[in-house]
């Protein structure tokens, strides 16, 4: 099947509710559907993973919350097992499911490979997502990075713990200044528009003044000082 990946700013701006796979007549691609209805590797026995490294992102108030557990072979630093739990919509569940497959297939990714995974990689494997779902529901890579840090921490290798690329602005959703920059580049030039895309500040409202400042900064950077406010 041809993957339909939504990344053009024009499509993202529409805030549409249609699948990009217009020929299929369903909201989500077949791969999304498959992982939504038959999720892989979801956590069924938390007690058995008590000692495993764990990472989480989001909050139910924002509509999406994820938790992932990883088992890593210390010798190869490859992920041998990954389990997850997700509160969220169809694409949130499917994207965590496929991420767990990507992390563990073919002998598993090394921690540094896993750290390099981006939402775009997950979307590509899913065969694309409806535009308005992209920024909010693909959070799994963040949860995974947070679990990887936890693994290093548990291994006493604090020097290998990496803080999120970019500075975290929204502590609950782990949204960085970089995420806000991307949203502005996608055409969201007001707080409302940026929130519509990435929900920043819905859980952690204290960050809103800073978010507004950043939006102004990136808007002026990319669209000029007298661009519309």
């Amino acid at each position: 099947m041809t993957p339909h990946i939504t990344n053009s700013s024009e499509e993202a701006r529409k805030g549409d509710v249609v699948s990009n796979s217009k020929d299929k007549g369903w909201f989500y691609s077949d791969i999304v559907k498959e992982h939504f209805f038959h999720p892989q590797n979801f956590m069924e026995d938390e007690a058995a993973y008590e000692d495993s490294a764990m990472g989480m992102v989001g909050s139910p108030a924002c509509g999406d919350a994820m938790r992932v557990w990883i088992v890593v072979d210390p010798a190869t630093e490859k992920i041998t097992d990954m389990k997850w739990k997700t509160f969220g919509c169809g694409s949130a569940i499917a994207s965590t499911s496929i991420l767990s497959v990507m992390a563990t297939e073919n002998g598993g990714l090394t921690l540094s490979q896993a750290r390099a995974l981006r939402p775009q990689d997950i979307m590509e494997r899913l065969g694309g997502l409806p535009a308005r779902k992209v920024h909010c529901s693909v959070l799994g890579d963040k949860a995974l990075r947070s679990a990887i840090n936890d693994w290093y921490r548990r291994a006493g290798r604090h020097e290998d713990v990496q803080v999120e690329a970019g500075r975290i602005i929204d502590k609950i959703l782990k949204i960085t200044d970089h995420d806000i920059e991307e949203a502005v580049l996608d055409g969201a030039t007001t707080l409302e528009a940026v929130q519509q895309k990435i929900k920043v500040g819905t859980g952690d409202t204290t960050c809103i003044p800073e978010v507004e400042q950043l939006i102004r900064f990136y808007r002026e950077k990319y669209f000029g000082a007298d661009s519309k406010k």
């Binding site: 509710v17 139910p60 108030a61 924002c62 509509g63 919509c89 949130a92 308005r132 929130q195 519509q196």
Partner: peptide, 20 residues
């Protein structure tokens, strides 16, 4: 929220005092 174009949960249910 995930099902609405605005990505906001129902303003009606929030107005009745329920949490997000």
């Amino acid at each position: 929220a995930c099902a609405s174009a605005s990505l906001d949960p129902s303003h009606v249910i929030l107005a009745t005092g329920l949490s997000y």
